[in-house]
């Protein structure tokens, strides 16, 4: 899932302090799971903003909403009868949702309320780590199900680099060496021969390097 973290309150206040009618719009999808932008966080942020405006002696309407997903028009449409009543919205969805909200209501100012970080897993509550960079051409079959692009600090495709220490990355000792993980996993699977095959320079054209991407699935389109 997409992982995000709440933006500092000061940054959000700086963005919205001159407006009088605000909507705080959460998303019940990924950002709810990582507790950055769901209904609970909407209520916390709205309460904090109300407190700020009260202390500042300013009367500001701060309303709350959370949509099933902000990355789908059908759910964004649920705000259609309300948006005209606001000067601006703070979206607690990921960057995808925040953009789609702004796209759908393009006459309204939309501020991001979270910093979208990566696609990753919930290791524990409050501990999320990256697993995929959406490069557009998955190589997990070759690497024991562990992605060196997302998990090796140097994105090496023919690792390891030789700098790891006791299984930890030389760049950040809190991160496991992806290539050590790959080696151990391939050993467990009896596939160490894959480890020994050199990999050609990757085709990055399917990644962001090829420009903004779009999937067209003719089989699904009506």
């Amino acid at each position: 899932m997409i992982k995000a973290k709440p933006k500092p309150l000061e940054e959000i206040i700086d963005n919205v302090k001159d407006f009088n009618k605000l909507l705080i719009a959460g998303c019940d999808g990924c950002v709810t799971v990582c507790e950055a932008g769901g209904l609970k966080e909407v209520k916390i942020l709205a309460a904090a903003l109300r407190l700020y405006f009260t202390q500042a002696g300013k009367q500001v309407q701060v309303d709350e909403a959370s949509l099933t997903r902000q990355c789908e028009k059908e759910y964004l449409a649920q705000l259609s009868d309300r948006m005209d009543g606001y000067d601006a919205a703070v979206s607690l969805a990921c960057g995808v949702g925040a953009q789609y909200l702004a796209e759908m209501y393009n006459h309204k100012i939309v501020f991001p309320g979270v910093d979208t970080c990566f696609m990753g897993v919930n290791e524990e509550r409050g501990l999320y780590s990256e697993r995929c960079q959406a490069c557009g051409r998955c190589i997990l079959a070759e690497t024991g199900g562990i992605c060196p692009i997302a998990r090796c600090s140097k994105r090496m495709l023919n690792g390891p680099c030789g700098g790891s220490d006791k299984g930890k990355c030389e760049i950040n000792p809190d991160i496991p060496c992806a290539w050590e993980l790959i080696y151990e996993r391939l050993k467990t699977l009896g596939q160490l021969d894959r480890f020994e095959r050199p990999v050609e320079p990757k085709d990055w054209s399917t990644s962001r390097d090829g420009g903004p991407r779009k999937i067209v699935r003719e089989d699904l389109r009506i």
Binding site: D203, W204, S205, S207
Partner: peptide, 13 residues
């Protein structure tokens, strides 16, 4: 110019 216009389409910009 964009990488995609050249002769190394697979490269990272």
């Amino acid at each position: 110019e964009e990488i995609t216009h050249g002769d190394h389409h697979k490269a990272r910009a």
